[in-house]
Amino acid sequence: MGKRAIRESAADRLFIAAVYLFLTVVLCVILFPLLYILSASFSSPAAVTSGKVWLWPVDFSLEGYKAVFRNANILIGYGNSLFYAVFGTLVNVAMTVMIAYPLARKTFYGRGAIMFALAFTMFFDGGLIPNYLVVKSLGLLDTRLAMIVPGALAVFQVIVARTFFQTTIPDELAEAAEIDGCSDFKFMVNVVLPLSKPILAVMTLMYAVGHWNAYFNALIYLKNANLFPLQIFLRNILILNTVDPAMVANVNDLLVQQGLKDLLKYSLIVVSSAPVLIIYPFVQKHFVKGVMIGSLKG
């Protein structure tokens, strides 16, 4: 800042004030609906129904959260989603590294052809029904594997990881290791992976969030409710409006029951988004870096 020899003109100061104002408005527009949901979830049913909640909780209560946890399906869904996110992400990261690292090496004969074959799938896709038929013919319908195997690899992540390996691991290093008798596999595990923690973190985050948020594959591949991820149960309650009577069973007054039905939706939104939004601030830096690496290659 010390270099700023020439003072800003009045017009410039006005302009920068407008920029700050604009960004403040953007900030409020994004924060307000989120804050509203958070506040409503901690309010009493009556306060929510009568529209008394604006920015802060009114008549603080945990009724909504109690109602959410009275529903056994939510817990089943939470468990299933956790399972799919953990194992799905493990498979994703392993598969992505397995193909992205060789593709980053010049000594890998045939990498051009493989790169083309991968990139082509980003622009042309068989479509819903042919994909469904493949999953069906492999006997994966209505199994836990249907939530993991059909999405085992994202081509976009492969390209991002490959770009990272290419730019951070110099070819000379690999050549030197090769001459010293280090195998490709050993080099990858002992040298490349420890140097690639940022990209591994980003990849893990993106894949894990993808699994946690996914509902489409479950919608088309699963029929057994015991295998449903959280998102399917959320859809039933939040969007199709089918509230399990057990959740509001302890309330006899119909009007209060309706209020609780409204309230528990807010609580449910908070409960289900919490895991992702809690982890988010800690990985934000990495994640921005990852997107930027991806953008280098276009």
Binding site: V26, L27, I30, L31, L34, V209, W212, N213, A214, Y215, Q231, L234, R235, L238, I239, I269, S272, S273, V276, L277, Y280, P281, Q284, F287, V288
Partner: peptide, 13 residues
């Protein structure tokens, strides 16, 4: 930080 956050909200939510 605030403007990136909604990206992580699931479609259902």
């Amino acid at each position: 930080m605030v403007t990136y956050a909604p990206y992580f909200i699931s479609t259902v939510i």
